[in-house]
Amino acid sequence: MSGLMWFRRRRSERALAAYQRELLDTHYREVENMYTKMRMWRHDYRNHLQTLKALAANGDLAGIRDYLDKLDDELIVLDSPIKSGNAMADAILSSKMSLAQSRGIAVRVDAHIPVKLRISELDLCCVLGNLFDNAIEANADLPEGERMIRVYMDMKGTQLYISFTNTTGAHKPRKNHGRFHTTKSGEGHGFGLLHIDEIVENAGGYLSRNSEDGAFTTEILLPQQ
Rank of each mutant, 00 (worst) to 15 (best):
L142S: 08
M155E: 13
G169D: 00
N134F: 09
N166L: 01
Q225M: 14
W41H: 14
F216C: 00
G104M: 02
K172M: 12
T182E: 00
R108K: 10
M5V: 14
K156C: 10
A87W: 04
R209I: 10
S163V: 14
A111M: 09
T167G: 06
E144H: 05
L193Y: 12
A91N: 02
I149Q: 09
G169N: 01
E30R: 03
L131E: 13
A15N: 02
I113M: 05
A56S: 11
L78W: 06
L52I: 14
A138R: 00
I162W: 00
T218D: 10
N210T: 11
F216V: 00
L78H: 02
A215T: 14
G157F: 04
W41K: 14
I196H: 11
D73L: 12
A17S: 08
H171T: 09
L75H: 07
L61M: 10
L99H: 06
S102I: 00
M1P: 05
A15G: 01
P143W: 05
A170P: 04
L49I: 15
E74Y: 06
V127T: 08
M5W: 11
L16I: 01
R29S: 10
S211L: 04
K96A: 06
L131A: 14
N33K: 07
L160T: 02
G63C: 14
E187W: 07
L61T: 08
G204Y: 01
R65H: 04
E121T: 09
M40A: 15
E30N: 07
D133T: 03
I119Y: 02
S98D: 06
H112T: 07
I92L: 13
A57G: 12
F7G: 01
A135H: 02
E212W: 07
W6H: 09
T217K: 13
R9N: 09
L75F: 07
Q225S: 15
L24H: 05
T165V: 02
T165E: 08
L23F: 06
K70H: 06
M40L: 15
N176V: 15
V77H: 05
R10N: 13
S163K: 15
D60H: 06
Y206T: 10
D133A: 08
A135W: 04
V200T: 08
L124M: 09
S84F: 11
I113E: 00
A140I: 03
N33M: 04
Q159H: 14
Q224E: 05
L52H: 01
H112G: 04
V200S: 11
S185C: 01
S12F: 01
D133G: 01
S120K: 02
D73W: 04
M5L: 13
G157N: 03
Y161Q: 12
M34A: 13
G59Q: 04
R147K: 15
T165G: 00
E22T: 13
P143N: 11
L52R: 01
K37S: 09
G190T: 06
L4W: 06
K175E: 09
M153I: 14
A106N: 03
R118C: 05
D66F: 00
D72G: 11
D213H: 11
C126L: 15
I105K: 05
H27Q: 07
V31M: 12
Q101D: 11
I82Y: 01
I64G: 09
R174W: 01
N176D: 08
L122F: 03
L124I: 03
